[in-house]
Amino acid sequence: MIIAEKKPIEEIIQEVKDFDRILILGCNECVTVCEAGGKKEVEVLASVLRMYFMAQGQEKTIGERTLERQCDHEYLEEIRNIIDDYDAVVSLACGVGVQFAAEKYLTMPLLPGVNTVCLGANEDRGLWTERCQACGTCVLARTGGICPVSRCAKRVLNGPCGGSTNGKCEISKDTDCAWQLIIDRLKALDKMDDYEKVAPVKDWSTDRAGGPRTVTREDVKI
């Protein structure tokens, strides 16, 4: 899923302070699971903003709404009839949701309430970690199912680099070396021979280097 993290309250206050009627818009998907932008977080942010402005002697209308998804037209349509009651929207969806909402409601200021961090997994309670950078040409079949693009700090495809120490990456003792993990897994799979196959120069045009990416499916189109 997409992993996001709440923006500091101070930053959000700065962004919204000049608006009187603010809608806090949550999303029921990824950001709910990673506890950054679901219904609960909408409630908390709304309450905090109300209190902050109240204490400042300012009366503001702070609305709350959480959509099934913000990256889909049909759900975003659900706020069409209420959107004009507001001067600005703070979206707690990932960057995709914020933008999709902005595209739909052209004259409405849309402010991000979270920082979108990565594509990751819920590794443990309160711990979300990156697993993929959507490079567009997946190499997992050749790397024991561990991604060197997202999990190696240098995206080394023929690793490890010289900095791997006791299973950890040179950037930090808290970061696993992706190539240690790859080698452990190749060993477990009894495929160490694969290690010596040289990974060819990668086609990064399917990564962000190639510009905005799209998937077109004629068979799905109506």
Binding site: K154, L157, N158, C161, G163, E170, I171, V198, A199, V201
Partner: peptide
């Protein structure tokens, strides 16, 4: 070489490239 990670240097906030890795550079 692949080079030490930029976080060790004076431009820790910079991007890194790693379009090729050191072995691919040898091949190149």
């Amino acid at each position: 070489l692949s080079g030490d990670h930029q976080s060790f240097g004076d431009c820790a906030q910079g991007q890194n490239v790693h379009d090729l890795d050191s072995m691919q550079l040898v091949q190149t």
